[in-house]
């Protein structure tokens, strides 16, 4: 059993989820103006997953993320101001404007990168976990992936490898029901992604991804097991994304009212707020204060991103190699 969440933990959880939501909502709005280059894939709706998992991790644990990576970045401790600048293509961005939304990474906080290749992260976390195991550090690695990636060979290979080598890896399947525009019901051959765990000799569990507490507890157990040498686990988190696969996707493949219904009834922030205020663990004023601070942070990040310089020609050929 994981340890009881303190008041500070709850404040942190809320702040993290709210930061992700605010960040993504703001991108949704700003993207529509046409000022943001490229693609963005928003994480809004899935905040309880990244937050519930990453609150069990330290800076020295590693995560691999997906093309829908902003939430994982924020939850793992990447600076949202740098992220915003990155997404706006600025030199001040986390990756100097060379990576963009799909490649935000910060190895200094154990964030191995969002990834433009679906399923790309599975093998990578086997490596960070192998390093931890060889060095005896007790660090763990988490591979976030979606229901789409759950069908990729890299994920199968990685699950097999992690099990064969008894690595401290958590395969964290975020099943939001859609791989781009194709339904999970069509593309995944088994009932739950967690069912696949048994094929690789590891525990598998499915949890409600709208419930921060459920995710935190399930991931926490798996992470603790991994830290103690108990090997890998597969945790499937069922949730929903509020926006399209990418910004501009009208989501015509979804049922009428599907998203609105989820927002109204299951939203992770809504559920969290009700529970902690009803229990008296936090006051509404605590949450309101965080909301205001987060809004100021994100507003500030956008103002800064808009005014920050873009990279120049001098930056075009730097950072290809350490030395060449």
């Amino acid at each position: 059993m994981t340890k009881k969440l303190t008041r500070d933990d709850l404040l942190t959880a809320y702040r993290t989820m709210r930061t992700i939501r605010e960040f993504e909502e703001r991108l949704h709005t700003d993207f529509a103006t046409g000022e943001i280059p490229g693609f963005v894939h928003l994480y809004a709706g899935e905040e309880a997953s990244a937050t519930g998992v990453c609150m069990n991790l330290t800076k020295d644990d590693h995560i691999a993320s997906t093309h829908r990576g902003h939430g994982h970045c924020i939850a793992k401790g990447v600076d949202p101001v740098g992220m915003m600048a990155e997404i706006w293509g600025r030199k001040t961005g986390t990756c100097k404007g060379k990576g963009g939304s799909m490649h935000i990474a910060d190895l200094s906080v154990g964030m191995l990168g969002a990834n433009g290749i679906v399923g790309g992260g599975g093998p990578l976390v086997c490596g960070t976990a192998l390093a931890a195991k060889l060095r005896g550090t007790r660090n763990v690695s988490v591979c976030f992936f979606g229901d789409g990636a759950s069908n990729q060979g890299t994920i199968f290979e990685a699950m097999n490898l992690a099990s064969v080598w008894n690595l401290p890896v958590i395969f964290l399947a975020e099943n939001n029901g859609y791989a781009e525009a194709t339904s999970y019901n069509y593309s995944v051959a088994c009932d739950t992604i967690a069912d696949r765990a048994s094929a690789f000799g590891m525990p598998g569990i499915t949890v409600d991804g709208f419930d921060f507490f459920a995710v935190h507890e399930a991931a926490g157990e798996a992470i603790e097991r991994a830290r103690n040498g108990g090997g890998p686990s597969l945790v499937e988190v069922k949730l929903s994304r509020y926006y399209g696969h990418f910004e501009g996707d009208q989501q015509t493949y979804r049922a009428p009212g599907e998203v609105q219904n989820i927002r109204d009834t299951k939203d992770c922030l809504l559920q969290f707020s009700r529970r902690v205020t009803a229990s008296g663990e936090l006051a509404q004023a605590d949450l309101d204060a965080i909301d205001a601070e987060v809004k100021a942070l994100i507003d500030g990040s956008v103002v800064k991103a808009k005014s920050d310089p873009k990279p120049t020609e001098a930056d075009l050929l730097t950072d290809v190699y350490v030395s060449y």
């Binding site: 590693h62 691999a64 190895l107 191995l112 790309g120 599975g122 093998p123 990578l124 976390v125 086997c126 490596g127 960070t128 976990a129 192998l130 390093a131 931890a132 060889l134 690695s141 060979g153 890299t154 290979e157 990685a158 097999n160 490898l161 064969v164 080598w165």
Partner: peptide, 27 residues
């Protein structure tokens, strides 16, 4: 312990080598 047989799983172990390299190993 440092010469490690792998499954026939090239994406898996080549990717693992890359991941390990990202945190300071020299695989």
């Amino acid at each position: 312990g440092r010469v490690i047989d792998t499954p026939i799983s090239e994406s898996g172990y080549v990717g693992a080598a890359i991941g390990a390299a990202c945190c300071g190993m020299r695989p």
